[in-house]
Nucleic acid binder design. Sequence first.
DNA 1: GGGATTGTTTAAAT
DNA 2: GATTTAAACAATCC
Length: 278
Amino acid sequence: MPELPEVETIARGLAPQVTGRTILGVEAVRPSVLNVSGPDLADAVVGRTIEGVRRRAKLLILDLDRPLHLVFHLKMTGRVWAGSRREVPQTHTHVLFDLGEDTTLYFRDVRRFGYCRVLSTPALQDWDFFAGLGPEPLECGCEDFLKRIRGRRARIKGLLLDQRVVAGLGNIYVDEALHLAGIHPARKAADLSGRRLADLHRAVTTVLSKAIDLGGSTFRDFLNASGQPGNYQDEFMAYGRSGQPCKKCKATLKAVRVAGRSSTFCPCCQPAGSTGKS
DNA sequence: GGGATTGTTTAAAT
DNA sequence: GATTTAAACAATCC
């Protein structure tokens, strides 16, 4: 489940491997993950040069000349990496880009929830989802963060997961940030003081920065552009630790369902009722 | 074979 | 109309 730190890790690893390369050929094994047909994808991108690799929210974006953009959403199990042209494609590898010099860019997704789209710059900007994304959490100042959340009646976890509020967080890093800030996931934003929300803003920044430093989290199948796992999973305070002791206070972590997601929290550090600090 | 898994969209409710 | 919540969906693994 690549979230912001995992996609950032992939983008940073991929950039030096593919920037400046020209796409010589395309093999669309399963065009259903594309927004165009296989031949149309080839028409659009063969001969184009990759000018850069970047991330926006959880999207991995390869900027091509012309200009065009290859946009990947990895959803739960998607993976993008550059390998040898002679690498035997694993099952569920849906699209291959021949970059010459014995390099192929692979897009693989076991569950096939992810996708690869080719878009012109205007089409990218007109894409409702893309245009509606909130600010990058690591570039969002505390004032802007508060303005987007303070006073709203929705539960704080739901707001943090909403990509239009802040873009790039998923279930893992929301649970981690809420634990660090000492806020129960089901608290209503309107019941949290500006001071508590400022704590939360700082917690989001801290958690994401450290996760990027450690190359993301691997607890199931995330691998970066070089095939290496991340190391942040060892830092998890909350996510996936239901029934285990809180690393801060030893209380037993509990799991509840908030905003339709399983949410793990510490009943002691993240009290449900009061606005008091942990 | 049913349940769990997730990010996003859509529809319904407030 | 804006905000919020719930359900649906994609496909696979265990």
